[in-house]
Simulated scan of single mutants.
Amino acid sequence: MNDATLARNGGALCLDYINTVAPRTGPVDLEWLNTYPDLVRWARDGDLVDDAAASGLLRAAAARPAAARVAFRTAIDLREGLYRLFAAIVDNTAPADADLEVLRHAFATATRHGRLLPHAGGFGWNWDAAAGTEPDLLDRPWWPVAASAMELLTHGPLDRIKQCPTDGGCSWLFLDATRNRSRRWCSMDDCGGHNKARRQTDQRREARRRTRV
């Protein structure tokens, strides 16, 4: 996993998962998911699995490296399919059928291993945390992601999904929870702050140029 700090400011688990590479358009500068162990560490850092489950997944991956490579490729294919799906929604275009099918298949796989249990005044998915011998149990890190994406797609709020500007930003996706829907950047500590500093530098440079003239 990349040593650079990974912000989780998407506002939804599935968007945070999409935002594990930067920028989202153009050449990649930072990639946080390079190997299957990176995927497990990301899930552990986000409390999607506990220490015991993470250790079990890493042991299973070490014992079955070919299966782990397939599971990792599936995880990245899911990430990219979700990005295209939700980016299309941001652009007010219809998502591709293939990307909808990626989510449908992922959600079906995840829910096959999940249980619906009472949770916080309602119901939520509880995921089997054990890393067993079935190959698809190596997919455990992204099961909650698939559930999050299906929840966002079917219940919204889709009209609050935005994308950090590509001109000076990372193109990450996020939910705008501001009352007046004024959020523009993934974070003012990152892209927003850097863009503001750039504008101020340009303004000072322009002011000095005018003074000399």
Results as ranks from 00 to 15, higher is better:
residue 1 M to T: 12
residue 2 N to G: 11
residue 5 T to Y: 13
residue 9 N to K: 10
residue 10 G to I: 01
residue 11 G to F: 04
residue 12 A to H: 05
residue 12 A to M: 11
residue 12 A to L: 08
residue 15 L to F: 03
residue 16 D to Y: 01
residue 17 Y to P: 14
residue 18 I to N: 05
residue 19 N to Q: 08
residue 20 T to G: 10
residue 22 A to T: 05
residue 26 G to K: 00
residue 28 V to N: 02
residue 32 W to Y: 02
residue 37 P to Y: 03
residue 37 P to C: 09
residue 38 D to E: 04
residue 42 W to N: 07
residue 43 A to M: 06
residue 56 G to R: 05
residue 57 L to Y: 06
residue 64 R to E: 01
residue 66 A to K: 01
residue 68 A to L: 02
residue 70 V to H: 04
residue 76 I to F: 02
residue 78 L to Q: 08
residue 78 L to G: 11
residue 80 E to Q: 05
residue 80 E to Y: 02
residue 81 G to L: 04
residue 81 G to N: 05
residue 81 G to R: 02
residue 92 N to E: 15
residue 94 A to P: 04
residue 101 E to K: 15
residue 104 R to N: 15
residue 106 A to V: 12
residue 108 A to N: 08
residue 111 T to W: 10
residue 112 R to P: 12
residue 117 L to G: 12
residue 122 G to Y: 03
residue 122 G to C: 05
residue 122 G to A: 06
residue 122 G to R: 01
residue 123 F to Y: 14
residue 123 F to A: 14
residue 130 A to H: 10
residue 136 D to C: 09
residue 136 D to Y: 08
residue 137 L to A: 11
residue 151 E to L: 14
residue 152 L to Y: 05
residue 157 P to H: 15
residue 158 L to Q: 09
residue 158 L to A: 11
residue 161 I to E: 10
residue 165 P to F: 07
residue 165 P to N: 03
residue 177 A to D: 15
residue 177 A to M: 13
residue 187 S to E: 12
residue 195 N to Y: 13
residue 199 R to M: 11
residue 204 R to H: 12
residue 209 R to A: 07
residue 213 V to H: 06
residue 213 V to S: 08
